[in-house]
Protein backbone atom coordinates (compact mmCIF):
# COMPACT_ATOMS: atom_id res chain seq x y z
CA UNK A 1 0.00 0.00 0.00
CA UNK A 2 2.85 2.38 -0.82
CA UNK A 3 2.34 4.31 -4.06
CA UNK A 4 5.09 4.97 -6.58
CA UNK A 5 6.46 8.50 -6.68
CA UNK A 6 4.32 11.11 -8.42
CA UNK A 7 4.27 14.84 -9.00
CA UNK A 8 1.44 16.65 -7.34
CA UNK A 9 -0.34 19.69 -8.78
CA UNK A 10 -3.03 21.85 -7.30
CA UNK A 11 -4.15 24.35 -9.93
CA UNK A 12 -6.49 27.19 -9.05
CA UNK A 13 -8.60 27.08 -12.21
CA UNK A 14 -9.80 24.62 -14.84
CA UNK A 15 -7.59 26.19 -17.52
CA UNK A 16 -4.61 25.17 -15.43
CA UNK A 17 -5.96 21.62 -15.30
CA UNK A 18 -6.40 21.46 -19.06
CA UNK A 19 -2.89 22.78 -19.59
CA UNK A 20 -1.45 20.07 -17.36
CA UNK A 21 -3.51 17.39 -19.07
CA UNK A 22 -2.30 18.55 -22.45
CA UNK A 23 1.27 18.64 -21.26
CA UNK A 24 1.34 15.20 -19.65
CA UNK A 25 -1.26 13.30 -21.65
CA UNK A 26 -1.80 9.76 -20.38
CA UNK A 27 0.64 10.29 -17.54
CA UNK A 28 -1.66 12.74 -15.78
CA UNK A 29 -4.89 12.08 -13.91
CA UNK A 30 -7.20 14.47 -12.11
CA UNK A 31 -8.26 13.67 -8.59
CA UNK A 32 -11.46 14.80 -6.96
CA UNK A 33 -12.14 13.17 -3.56
CA UNK A 34 -9.46 10.56 -4.18
CA UNK A 35 -11.44 7.60 -2.86
CA UNK A 36 -11.01 5.53 -5.99
CA UNK A 37 -7.74 6.81 -7.38
CA UNK A 38 -5.60 6.88 -4.25
CA UNK A 39 -6.25 3.25 -3.27
CA UNK A 40 -5.50 2.23 -6.85
CA UNK A 41 -2.23 4.15 -6.68
CA UNK A 42 -1.37 2.60 -3.33
CA UNK A 43 -2.02 -0.83 -4.77
CA UNK A 44 0.14 0.21 -7.72
CA UNK A 45 -2.70 -0.76 -10.01
CA UNK A 46 -2.85 2.81 -11.31
CA UNK A 47 0.36 4.48 -12.30
CA UNK A 48 -0.07 8.24 -12.15
CA UNK A 49 3.18 10.15 -12.55
CA UNK A 50 1.29 13.46 -12.50
CA UNK A 51 -1.58 13.85 -10.08
CA UNK A 52 -3.77 16.92 -10.45
CA UNK A 53 -5.81 17.72 -7.36
CA UNK A 54 -9.00 19.65 -8.17
CA UNK A 55 -9.85 20.77 -4.67
CA UNK A 56 -8.70 24.37 -5.04
CA UNK A 57 -10.87 25.10 -8.05
CA UNK A 58 -13.80 27.19 -6.83
CA UNK A 59 -15.57 26.97 -10.18
CA UNK A 60 -16.15 23.25 -9.71
CA UNK A 61 -17.99 23.72 -6.43
CA UNK A 62 -21.54 24.64 -5.71
CA UNK A 63 -25.09 23.50 -6.33
CA UNK A 64 -27.29 25.78 -8.44
CA UNK A 65 -31.05 25.49 -8.71
CA UNK A 66 -32.26 27.75 -11.48
CA UNK A 67 -35.98 27.34 -12.04
CA UNK A 68 -36.34 23.65 -12.67
CA UNK A 69 -32.74 23.16 -13.75
CA UNK A 70 -30.29 21.77 -11.24
CA UNK A 71 -26.54 22.05 -11.78
CA UNK A 72 -24.10 20.29 -9.50
CA UNK A 73 -20.42 21.14 -9.66
CA UNK A 74 -18.02 18.25 -10.02
CA UNK A 75 -16.39 18.93 -6.64
CA UNK A 76 -19.62 18.96 -4.66
CA UNK A 77 -19.29 16.30 -1.99
CA UNK A 78 -21.87 13.69 -1.14
CA UNK A 79 -22.08 15.31 2.26
CA UNK A 80 -23.13 18.56 0.59
CA UNK A 81 -25.79 16.74 -1.42
CA UNK A 82 -27.33 15.50 1.78
CA UNK A 83 -27.18 18.81 3.57
CA UNK A 84 -28.24 21.23 0.82
CA UNK A 85 -31.70 22.56 1.71
CA UNK A 86 -32.95 23.44 -1.74
CA UNK A 87 -31.69 20.24 -3.30
CA UNK A 88 -33.48 18.00 -0.87
CA UNK A 89 -36.74 19.66 -1.90
CA UNK A 90 -35.97 19.83 -5.62
CA UNK A 91 -34.51 16.35 -6.10
CA UNK A 92 -34.88 14.29 -2.93
CA UNK A 93 -33.60 11.14 -4.63
CA UNK A 94 -30.08 12.62 -4.48
CA UNK A 95 -29.87 12.77 -0.71
CA UNK A 96 -31.63 9.42 -0.41
CA UNK A 97 -28.94 7.90 -2.61
CA UNK A 98 -26.04 9.82 -1.09
CA UNK A 99 -27.00 8.63 2.39
CA UNK A 100 -26.46 5.09 1.16
CA UNK A 101 -22.93 5.80 -0.04
CA UNK A 102 -20.34 4.56 2.45
CA UNK A 103 -20.05 6.43 5.75
CA UNK A 104 -19.86 10.10 6.81
CA UNK A 105 -16.06 10.23 6.59
CA UNK A 106 -16.15 9.06 3.00
CA UNK A 107 -19.03 11.39 2.15
CA UNK A 108 -17.11 14.41 3.43
CA UNK A 109 -14.48 13.71 0.79
CA UNK A 110 -16.25 11.79 -1.98
CA UNK A 111 -17.51 13.98 -4.82
CA UNK A 112 -20.30 13.83 -7.34
CA UNK A 113 -17.86 14.44 -10.20
CA UNK A 114 -15.43 11.75 -9.14
CA UNK A 115 -18.21 9.27 -8.62
CA UNK A 116 -19.65 9.96 -12.08
CA UNK A 117 -16.44 10.40 -14.05
CA UNK A 118 -14.57 7.31 -13.00
CA UNK A 119 -16.79 4.77 -14.70
CA UNK A 120 -16.63 2.38 -11.77
CA UNK A 121 -19.62 0.03 -12.16
CA UNK A 122 -20.03 0.00 -8.39
CA UNK A 123 -20.55 3.73 -8.01
CA UNK A 124 -24.06 4.95 -7.24
CA UNK A 125 -24.14 8.31 -9.03
CA UNK A 126 -23.84 7.03 -12.62
CA UNK A 127 -27.06 5.01 -12.46
CA UNK A 128 -28.77 7.81 -10.62
CA UNK A 129 -27.73 10.36 -13.25
CA UNK A 130 -29.04 8.08 -15.96
CA UNK A 131 -32.33 7.82 -14.13
CA UNK A 132 -32.48 11.63 -13.99
CA UNK A 133 -31.38 11.90 -17.63
CA UNK A 134 -28.58 14.24 -16.62
CA UNK A 135 -26.24 15.98 -19.01
CA UNK A 136 -22.58 15.67 -18.16
CA UNK A 137 -20.51 18.75 -18.94
CA UNK A 138 -16.93 18.14 -20.01
CA UNK A 139 -14.27 20.78 -20.50
CA UNK A 140 -11.39 20.18 -22.88
CA UNK A 141 -8.91 22.17 -24.94
CA UNK A 142 -11.65 22.97 -27.45
CA UNK A 143 -14.09 24.21 -24.82
CA UNK A 144 -17.05 22.47 -23.23
CA UNK A 145 -19.36 19.82 -24.53
CA UNK A 146 -22.30 17.97 -23.11
CA UNK A 147 -22.89 14.24 -23.05
CA UNK A 148 -26.01 12.52 -21.83
CA UNK A 149 -25.30 10.33 -18.81
CA UNK A 150 -27.17 7.61 -20.67
CA UNK A 151 -24.51 7.82 -23.41
CA UNK A 152 -21.46 8.40 -21.26
CA UNK A 153 -20.51 4.90 -20.10
CA UNK A 154 -18.83 2.49 -22.50
CA UNK A 155 -17.38 -0.24 -20.28
CA UNK A 156 -15.92 -0.59 -16.81
CA UNK A 157 -13.74 2.49 -16.24
CA UNK A 158 -14.21 3.42 -19.93
CA UNK A 159 -16.24 6.50 -20.66
CA UNK A 160 -16.83 9.03 -23.39
CA UNK A 161 -14.45 11.46 -21.68
CA UNK A 162 -11.17 12.11 -23.52
CA UNK A 163 -7.90 12.05 -21.58
CA UNK A 164 -7.54 15.82 -21.83
CA UNK A 165 -11.08 16.53 -20.66
CA UNK A 166 -12.38 17.22 -17.17
CA UNK A 167 -15.88 16.62 -15.94
CA UNK A 168 -16.96 19.96 -14.56
CA UNK A 169 -20.64 19.57 -13.74
CA UNK A 170 -23.84 17.63 -14.20
CA UNK A 171 -27.15 19.23 -15.06
CA UNK A 172 -30.67 17.85 -15.04
CA UNK A 173 -34.25 18.93 -14.83
CA UNK A 174 -35.66 18.79 -11.33
CA UNK A 175 -37.57 15.53 -11.23
CA UNK A 176 -41.24 15.43 -10.38
CA UNK A 177 -43.41 12.70 -8.97
CA UNK A 178 -42.29 9.85 -6.76
CA UNK A 179 -38.74 8.67 -6.30
CA UNK A 180 -36.76 5.96 -4.64
CA UNK A 181 -33.16 4.87 -4.31
CA UNK A 182 -32.97 1.33 -2.98
CA UNK A 183 -29.67 -0.42 -2.33
CA UNK A 184 -28.57 -3.71 -0.90
CA UNK A 185 -25.01 -3.96 0.32
CA UNK A 186 -23.10 -6.27 2.59
CA UNK A 187 -21.90 -3.58 4.95
CA UNK A 188 -21.13 0.09 5.27
CA UNK A 189 -18.58 1.10 2.68
CA UNK A 190 -19.43 -1.72 0.30
CA UNK A 191 -20.56 -1.39 -3.27
CA UNK A 192 -24.10 -2.44 -4.05
CA UNK A 193 -25.08 -6.05 -4.48
CA UNK A 194 -27.88 -4.38 -6.38
CA UNK A 195 -29.20 -0.80 -6.36
CA UNK A 196 -32.08 0.83 -8.15
CA UNK A 197 -32.93 4.46 -8.91
CA UNK A 198 -36.56 5.06 -9.82
CA UNK A 199 -38.53 8.20 -10.69
CA UNK A 200 -42.24 7.88 -11.45
CA UNK A 201 -44.88 10.46 -12.31
CA UNK A 202 -48.55 9.77 -11.99
CA UNK A 203 -51.55 11.08 -13.89
CA UNK A 204 -55.12 10.04 -13.25
CA UNK A 205 -54.05 7.12 -11.14
CA UNK A 206 -51.73 5.69 -13.74
CA UNK A 207 -48.03 5.86 -14.40
CA UNK A 208 -47.36 8.77 -16.71
CA UNK A 209 -43.59 8.46 -16.92
CA UNK A 210 -41.06 6.11 -15.35
CA UNK A 211 -37.30 6.17 -15.42
CA UNK A 212 -35.40 3.23 -13.99
CA UNK A 213 -31.68 2.58 -13.65
CA UNK A 214 -29.68 0.01 -11.73
CA UNK A 215 -26.14 -0.15 -10.41
CA UNK A 216 -23.38 -2.76 -10.18
CA UNK A 217 -25.24 -5.34 -12.20
CA UNK A 218 -23.25 -4.92 -15.37
CA UNK A 219 -19.94 -3.33 -16.35
CA UNK A 220 -21.84 -0.06 -16.84
CA UNK A 221 -24.88 1.41 -15.14
CA UNK A 222 -28.08 0.09 -16.68
CA UNK A 223 -30.89 2.47 -17.58
CA UNK A 224 -33.65 0.28 -18.90
CA UNK A 225 -36.05 2.05 -21.18
CA UNK A 226 -38.12 -1.12 -21.48
CA UNK A 227 -38.45 -1.40 -17.73
CA UNK A 228 -39.81 2.14 -17.55
CA UNK A 229 -42.11 1.56 -20.50
CA UNK A 230 -43.50 -1.53 -18.84
CA UNK A 231 -44.92 0.68 -16.11
CA UNK A 232 -46.26 3.54 -18.20
CA UNK A 233 -50.00 3.54 -18.47
CA UNK A 234 -50.43 0.92 -15.75
CA UNK A 235 -51.60 1.33 -12.18
CA UNK A 236 -48.21 0.03 -11.13
CA UNK A 237 -49.84 -3.20 -10.04
CA UNK A 238 -48.01 -6.44 -9.38
CA UNK A 239 -48.20 -7.51 -13.00
CA UNK A 240 -46.72 -4.25 -14.26
CA UNK A 241 -43.91 -4.47 -11.78
CA UNK A 242 -43.22 -8.02 -12.85
CA UNK A 243 -42.99 -6.84 -16.45
CA UNK A 244 -40.65 -4.02 -15.45
CA UNK A 245 -38.45 -6.45 -13.53
CA UNK A 246 -38.43 -8.86 -16.45
CA UNK A 247 -37.36 -6.04 -18.77
CA UNK A 248 -34.58 -4.99 -16.42
CA UNK A 249 -33.39 -8.57 -16.00
CA UNK A 250 -33.07 -8.67 -19.75
CA UNK A 251 -30.76 -5.68 -19.66
CA UNK A 252 -28.45 -6.47 -16.76
CA UNK A 253 -25.49 -8.83 -16.92
CA UNK A 254 -24.11 -9.39 -13.42
CA UNK A 255 -20.99 -11.43 -12.77
CA UNK A 256 -20.15 -13.64 -9.84
CA UNK A 257 -17.96 -12.13 -7.11
CA UNK A 258 -17.71 -12.31 -3.34
CA UNK A 259 -21.19 -10.78 -3.10
CA UNK A 260 -22.58 -13.95 -4.59
CA UNK A 261 -23.34 -15.97 -7.71
CA UNK A 262 -25.23 -14.66 -10.72
CA UNK A 263 -28.53 -16.36 -9.83
CA UNK A 264 -28.53 -14.61 -6.46
CA UNK A 265 -27.69 -11.24 -7.94
CA UNK A 266 -30.43 -11.51 -10.53
CA UNK A 267 -32.95 -12.48 -7.89
CA UNK A 268 -31.92 -9.65 -5.60
CA UNK A 269 -31.94 -7.20 -8.50
CA UNK A 270 -35.60 -8.09 -9.06
CA UNK A 271 -36.47 -7.73 -5.38
CA UNK A 272 -34.65 -4.42 -4.99
CA UNK A 273 -36.23 -3.03 -8.14
CA UNK A 274 -39.70 -4.12 -7.04
CA UNK A 275 -39.19 -2.39 -3.71
CA UNK A 276 -37.87 0.75 -5.36
CA UNK A 277 -40.81 0.94 -7.76
CA UNK A 278 -43.28 0.31 -4.94
CA UNK A 279 -41.82 3.10 -2.86
CA UNK A 280 -41.56 5.54 -5.77
CA UNK A 281 -45.17 4.82 -6.75
CA UNK A 282 -46.31 5.35 -3.16
CA UNK A 283 -44.62 8.73 -3.23
CA UNK A 284 -45.85 9.67 -6.72
Amino acid sequence: MIPAAFDYYRPKDVEGVIALLQEHGDDARVMAGGHSLIPMMKLRMAEVPHLIDLQDIAALKGITIDGDTITIGAMVTQHELINHDGLSAAAPILSEAALQIADPQVRYMGTVGGNIANGDPGNDMPGLMQCLDAQIELLGPEGTRKVAAREYYEAAYMTDREDDEVLISVRFAAPTGGYSYEKQKRKIGDYATAAAAVQITKAEGRVATASIAMTNLSDVPVWSEDAGDALVGTTCDAEAMKAAVAAMLGDIDPTEDNRGPVAFKRHVAGIILTRAITRAWDRA
Binding site: D103, R186, K187, I188, G189, D190, Y191, N258
Partner: peptide
Protein backbone atom coordinates in the same frame (compact mmCIF):
# COMPACT_ATOMS: atom_id res chain seq x y z
CA UNK B 1 -22.24 -13.43 9.22
CA UNK B 2 -19.57 -12.97 6.62
CA UNK B 3 -15.95 -12.69 7.69
CA UNK B 4 -13.76 -15.19 5.89
CA UNK B 5 -10.46 -15.78 4.19
CA UNK B 6 -11.39 -17.65 1.05
CA UNK B 7 -9.30 -18.98 -1.79
CA UNK B 8 -10.01 -19.87 -5.37
CA UNK B 9 -8.81 -23.14 -6.90
CA UNK B 10 -5.51 -21.53 -7.84
CA UNK B 11 -4.88 -20.62 -4.22
CA UNK B 12 -5.48 -16.93 -4.76
CA UNK B 13 -6.80 -15.12 -1.71
CA UNK B 14 -10.24 -13.78 -2.64
CA UNK B 15 -10.80 -11.72 0.47
CA UNK B 16 -7.54 -9.85 0.88
CA UNK B 17 -8.85 -6.35 1.51
CA UNK B 18 -11.37 -4.81 3.85
CA UNK B 19 -13.74 -4.39 0.92
CA UNK B 20 -14.36 -8.11 0.95
CA UNK B 21 -13.11 -9.10 4.40
CA UNK B 22 -15.96 -8.19 6.72
CA UNK B 23 -14.97 -5.98 9.63
CA UNK B 24 -18.18 -4.72 11.21
CA UNK B 25 -18.63 -1.10 12.15
CA UNK B 26 -21.03 0.47 14.62
CA UNK B 27 -23.56 0.43 11.79
CA UNK B 28 -23.74 -3.36 11.50
Amino acid sequence: LGQEISYDKMGNVKTGTLMDFFLPTAWE
